[in-house]
Design a protein around this nucleic acid. Structure first.
Length: 550
RNA sequence: GGCCCCUUCGUCCAGUGGUUAGGACGCGGCCCUUUCACGGCUGAAACACGGGUUCGAAUCCCGUAGGGGUCACCA
């Protein structure tokens, strides 16, 4: 029977495809890797993780990293996902070199890069398999297949479409012709070449040699709608797109023998495979994959909303990918993480548990190494997207905002209190007059609750004297405030206070606390001197004056 | 259930026959200090279990247990 009946969209011979997609011309050792997401409306953090590994592998070997949209399941497709994926990759600096780079725009000579646009290629390959006798049509209905599985369960044998259970594997041409004449829908299945009890050894870049039973399942390659399954598409695409290293989740480990068999049947050299363990999450006594349904942090969007700096997420992931990264970072504090070379051999075979505290810690370090200017830019991008009101305040006076961010940031030991941009509106809100006004009630409450308050007279003197010389340096400022405090019964330091607590109203810390509450509406702030410098004379004097009478 | 993968402090990892089993995050304590941080010092904390092999095992072998994955016309 003419195989064209089953592959109406086939139009090439294998030789033609080989000629159209020739081996890439790349330096020795260059790796070609890819990310192949399904557009189901979601970008999983695991996708970012896999992309990071793949892209690094390609780039550190002068190779190529491409994006292939695996949209062969039209039922599950969600519109707009490709944009989401592209945006997510771009946000974290993982944009592909090749493939779809913007809606409808492609880069590269190995496309199309959407599987749904590659029907002619898949069907051509399947037609070849059909002609070689490595594939056959199967007209079994869903009900028949279910009945098969029920029977297998009853007899307690291995479920699946294989061996004598593969009812269409050895049908006569007459049976096939009859089914065709009756217009029954069909799929095209692989004629599995694995022998009973045959075992094969397959290499994995992370895990070494792995032993499996040879594949005996006559897996579906072409669905009834003519679309390829993942299995066929993977083999065909990774061959003709000339992928050298497939990096994918370890859920594919069990179908690896099937894929290896398909490469062999086509006569193609398989790429190297690296099966990585997914990021997991503690769930009661056990662990499980981060799930899209239950775990908000499974979504890349969550990190974008929280405003984790791009490099924080990447460095955290790098920690999971290659255990030497942390040491490397310690030895090279000022070098971009791009310089770090990952090695798959160092990847953990077991799944890593997602650790938010660790991410936060990495993020603190990353932000700690950023300049006020860099933070300003990144935080403003975040704010424009996620907190427009704050963005307006923040952008109103860029040099003021940057001065705020620069507090305790210059010098050898910068503050490390910023973890994500989303904390900024609350953390530095008091610097902005409109949001400070909203905090006034809280400030007064906190002030009254203080163990020691300041007399209006003292408050006035502080305001007046500071108004006269706001440009004191830190030492002068400290000395001035200490003396002034002493005149009003505040011990100049803790030591003096502890020696004779009865002789003082409070200590210098109490005085500073009161000023903090008045100026910042909170007790925990960065260095008070710097805050006053940044706020400026007007604000300081104004806020102090309006606190008289509290 | 069959098959496959995995198993060192709470977490992420070092460790590839001989180590007081190391680091980081987190947690506790102390110090520094105008609060909060930062920083420094310090403490508690692990080789899943059972058999072997060996003078010697976290490291090699075999079991057991536990966890995960997979057995779709989803990827």
């Amino acid at each position: 029977m003419d195989s064209a009946v089953f592959t109406p969209q086939a139009q090439y011979t294998l030789e033609e495809l080989e000629a159209r997609f020739p081996p890439r011309v790349l330096p020795e050792g260059a790796r070609v890797t890819r990310f192949g997401p399904s557009p189901t409306g979601f970008m999983h953090i695991g996708g970012l993780y896999t992309s990071l590994v793949s892209r690094r592998l390609a780039h550190q070997s002068a190779g190529q990293f491409y994006l292939r949209i695996e949209d062969t399941d039209k039922k599950r497709e969600v519109e707009g996902t490709v944009d989401l994926i592209l945006a997510s990759l771009a946000t974290y600096g993982l944009s592909p070199d090749e493939g779809e780079i913007a809606d409808g725009q492609e880069l590269g000579a190995y496309g199309p890069y959407r599987q749904s646009e590659r029907m002619a290629i898949y069907q051509s390959c399947v037609r070849w398999l059909l002609d070689q006798g490595h594939a056959y049509p199967c007209f079994a209905s869903a009900d028949e297949l279910q009945a098969l599985r029920d029977e297998q369960a009853k007899r307690k044998v291995q479920p699946g479409y294989y061996g004598s259970w593969a009812i269409w594997r050895d049908k006569t041409e007459a049976d096939v012709a009859a089914a065709l004449a009756a217009s029954l829908p069909f799929t095209i299945r692989l004629r599995a070449s694995g022998l009973r009890d045959e075992r094969i050894t397959l290499p994995d870049t992370i895990r070494g040699d792995l032993e499996f039973p040879a594949n005996q399942t006559d897996v579906v390659m072409l669905k009834a709608d003519g679309m390829p399954t993942y299995h066929l598409a993977h083999v065909v695409d990774d061959h003709f797109m000339r992928t050298t290293d497939v990096v994918r989740g370890n859920e594919w480990l069990s179908s690896y023998p099937m894929h290896a068999q398909m490469f062999a049947l086509f006569g193609w050299a398989p790429p190297r495979f690296a099966h990585i363990s997914p990021i997991e999450k503690q769930d009661g006594g056990s662990r499980r994959k981060l799930s899209k349904r239950h775990d908000p942090e499974a979504s890349v969007g969550w990190y974008m909303e929280a405003g984790y700096p791009r490099d924080a997420v990447i460095e955290y992931l790098l920690n999971l990918i290659d255990s030497r990264f942390e040491d490397w970072r310690g030895e090279n504090p000022d070098v971009s993480h791009e310089q770090f070379q990952i090695e798959l051999e160092h990847m953990s075979r077991s799944g890593a548990l997602f650790d938010l505290a660790k991410l936060d810690s990495v993020s603190r370090e990353v932000v700690g190494a950023m300049s006020a200017h860099e933070i300003y830019d990144a935080a403003l991008v975040w704010a424009s997207e996620h907190d427009p009101q704050f963005a307006v305040r923040f952008a109103a006076d860029p040099s003021y905002s940057q001065a705020i961010l620069d507090i305790e940031r210059h010098g050898e030991r910068p503050r490390k209190d910023i973890v994500r941009w989303s904390q900024l509106p609350a953390d530095i809100g008091y610097f902005f007059d409109d949001s400070f006004a909203e905090l006034l009630g809280e400030a007064r409450e906190a002030y009254v609750a203080l163990s020691v308050c300041l007399s209006d007279e003292l408050l006035c003197r502080i305001a007046v004297e500071y108004g006269h010389s706001p440009d004191m340096n830190r030492e002068q400022w400290l000395e001035w405030l200490r003396e002034l405090g002493l005149a009003y019964g505040f011990a100049p330091n803790m030591k003096a206070f502890k020696v004779a607590p009865g002789e003082f109203r409070g200590h210098f810390g109490d005085l500073a606390s009161a000023l903090r509450v008045i100026l910042a509406a909170r007790r925990n702030t960065p260095d008070l001197y710097e805050i006053m410098q940044v706020l400026g004379k007007e604000r300081v004097v104004g806020r102090l004056s309006s606190a008289t009478g509290w």
